[in-house]
């Protein structure tokens, strides 16, 4: 017996639905995981802010019934930094896509990580710029095709979580639309973590990435995501050759370090607000 659990409707702008995402897109699954995570973490609706950039992922802000801010391309983290500094009590989730976060947004991404500011960056990685019709991003695997690389891209992708770790992020986790319960838990853990938390959420784009690269339909793409996933614990028993074929999911790293907003107010002796 499958237990049907409805999303908290008060956290959704139901008048804005149905959403614009394509059939088979994973963005709705990731967004639903975020909604459940906010509820599970017990945050008050008025204390939650969603900041998004530009692209398919960033449309999520329009459907979520919190304070939401649809910012410029790649700059969501910079907007969120200003917001967090002025209102440190807010729980801020920054929803970005792979193109949004790691191309134009790359600079803001590493600096948010360097400061270890208490923001929750949820990057929906579908390996493609979807909104503009399927161009490869800095997270597209080398050799994969896109409309701006019809013969396959030559470029090497970022390893996003390692980039963040190298820049100073103190929480890094990876989940996927194929395992939404795990993803929900990871978002909760990231939200409870004090510091810059990066959650990479792999998500299928059957319309562009899947079609260009013959990945099959939504079901095949979700199944492939699930089949290639291995937990951090499971990965520890694999040799490097086996591991290179896998998507390691779970909390990849977590550590303590001073958080920027706290440091700022301590150094100035001022009270927020």
């Amino acid at each position: 017996m499958v237990r049907v659990e409805h999303l908290n409707q008060t956290f959704l702008r139901t008048k804005k639905l149905p959403h614009i995402w394509c059939p088979g897109c994973g963005n709705g699954i990731v967004t639903a995981a975020l909604v459940r995570a906010v509820e599970r973490a017990g945050f008050a609706q008025r204390d939650v802010v969603i900041v998004s950039g530009i692209g398919c992922s960033s449309r999520a802000a329009g459907y979520l019934n919190f304070n939401t801010l649809h910012a410029t391309h790649g700059r969501a983290l910079a907007f969120a930094t200003g917001l967090k500094l002025s209102q440190p009590q807010l729980k801020i989730f920054v929803i970005m896509g792979d193109g949004d976060c790691s191309a134009i947004g790359g600079n803001h991404f590493i600096h948010a990580a360097r400061r270890n500011i208490d923001l929750n960056a949820v990057i929906i990685n579908n390996y493609i710029y979807g909104m503009t019709g399927g161009q490869h991003s800095p997270l597209t695997p080398a050799g994969r095709k896109s409309t701006t690389a019809p013969a396959g891209t030559l470029e090497r992708p970022f390893e996003l979580l390692e980039l963040a770790r190298g820049a100073g992020a103190t929480f890094g986790a990876r989940g996927s639309a194929a395992q939404p319960r795990q993803l929900e838990q990871l978002i909760v853990q990231g939200a409870r973590h004090k510091g810059f938390a990066v959650i990479e959420a792999l998500s299928p784009c059957p319309t562009y990435y899947g079609r260009k690269n013959r990945q099959g339909g939504p079901v095949e793409m979700l199944r492939a995501l699930k089949d290639s996933s291995v937990s951090v614990e499971g990965a520890s028993g694999l040799d490097p050759a086996e591991l290179s074929e896998k998507l390691v999911t779970g909390v990849i790293y977590v550590k303590d370090a001073p958080e920027y907003t706290e440091q700022y107010y301590r150094s100035t002796g001022k009270e927020p607000g």
């Binding site: 191309a103 909104m131 503009t132 019709g133 161009q135 800095p138 019809p150 891209t153």
Partner: peptide, 29 residues
């Protein structure tokens, strides 16, 4: 890419992939 321009660079990518552009084609960040 950016809407509504993207089709220009997509069309040029197709020329390049077919070896018909003549010049070079790269994607930027």
């Amino acid at each position: 890419p950016i809407t509504p321009q993207t089709a220009i660079v997509e069309t040029l990518a197709e020329y390049w992939a077919r070896g018909e552009l003549g010049g070079e084609y790269v994607n930027a960040e």
